[in-house]
Nucleic acid binder design. Sequence first.
DNA 1: TAGTGGTCTAGACCACAAA
DNA 2: TTGTGGTCTAGACCACTAT
Lengths: 267, 267
Amino acid sequence: MSERFPLYLVLAAKLERLVVTLAPNSLLPTEQQMAKRYGVSRVTVRSALDLLERNGLVTRLRGRGTTVSPRKITRHFSPLHSFEKDLASQGVAFETQIMSYDPVAAPSDSIRERLCLAERETVGCLSLVRLVEDRIVCHDLRHYPPKIARQLDPTLIERRDASDILESLAGAPVADVDWESEIVSASGDVAMALQIAPRTLVLANTYTWRLENGTPVEAGTISYRNDRCKFRYELRFNPDLDGGLADSGSGPTRMPGKRTVKRRERS
Amino acid sequence: MSERFPLYLVLAAKLERLVVTLAPNSLLPTEQQMAKRYGVSRVTVRSALDLLERNGLVTRLRGRGTTVSPRKITRHFSPLHSFEKDLASQGVAFETQIMSYDPVAAPSDSIRERLCLAERETVGCLSLVRLVEDRIVCHDLRHYPPKIARQLDPTLIERRDASDILESLAGAPVADVDWESEIVSASGDVAMALQIAPRTLVLANTYTWRLENGTPVEAGTISYRNDRCKFRYELRFNPDLDGGLADSGSGPTRMPGKRTVKRRERS
DNA sequence: TAGTGGTCTAGACCACAAA
DNA sequence: TTGTGGTCTAGACCACTAT
């Protein structure tokens, strides 16, 4: 039965059973030792560990070894909270590290549009990472319109809630948030900030904050490591309000009546 | 500059530039040919193609070769629509294939609780996949309380919107949806249904549908392939309503003042 | 300096799709 | 039957961590 499975999957299952019994940050045997112990090549061991690493079960570091990862943190996106308030409400300690701040950066077209800026205007560009138990979990790339950018002291953000600082600078409460979430391939910059390989999939949240009068005061993207974070979107809704699920209309797009099972795409 | 990058990443970038210029379903050179053409081993070619495959750019099939993938479909989760209505509104054709239906299955504890069932009651258990352009994009595992399970004709679901069928069986409109989204490792069953390797990360939506009087009429989990689907959650909200972003309180959890950059976790 | 994981190689066998 | 991608091996060199 289990003979039909590739070695690296069988090994991954064995290693997972081992890993879940160990304390976080425990050091696992070296890849060489595993290869010898399980009677497979080191490449096969690595294939198995790759899977566990992508799933956030183990952390590998060249020169040190492979360790059992701490549990993933959970990021609750609804009701919508800032990162700071979400983790604080769970009692999870975190740290913020500013990577760079450029008060007069040239904005991308997307940022310029979202901040409603003129052709030549610059933005404040803040790059930071959040760490839980000394492990990077997400990267923020935040952009501010010129008026706010000039006043901003980026080091404050390492110690205070970013939205609070923004509100004191803007002199009015943040009244509205546009917000959009997508799983994408990490760009080179984001991958470097998150210390993951380029093209790793991350969860990217793109947002714009506005004051009550509609003035945008911040726009940015927050990228989360899938191997260190879980995500929750909880919605409870009444379909009568927007006609979401109820009423059928003419039904879904009809398909030609192919009822036979298609060719398999994969073994 | 680019000499510092591993070969497989450089190659992945080259292949991506090639792939994006080709029509969907174009056949790429074989791994052997690429290895020869780019002067690397086949293992290195495979490392690069693994990345592109996980990102949904190429599809590989043993015996056939490597082809350029069609574009990802986009699943809009807010405002909340059924799969059928979401894709129909985008003009994207899809097909539904029932994999199995057991009208008297034993429910898991989670399902029994969500459907408010007694200890010994059974459920209707429906397993299906959705295909776009003959490619599986998601898998539904749906559970119905006994009264509805007895009446349900699963083959209808291949041709009609599932929520419409449910409403006609229940005799009342679906009035409320509990809904939760999470990125998880695919279990063996789900991986097999989606034709992906076990432990591949998928987006799993867990939901419960209820009538106006609170009676649950369906509970289940829908798992989406990350390499074939993009996802959108769009929210626009007023923080005054739930105190989400506004008002600071006592601030976030304070961290001990470590200001130095931590040891790198990865090169 | 010793030992780790990260990368890369050449070669092999297999299951599967297509002709 | 041919050729594909999927898996696996043994061996090598390198960059990095820890000592």
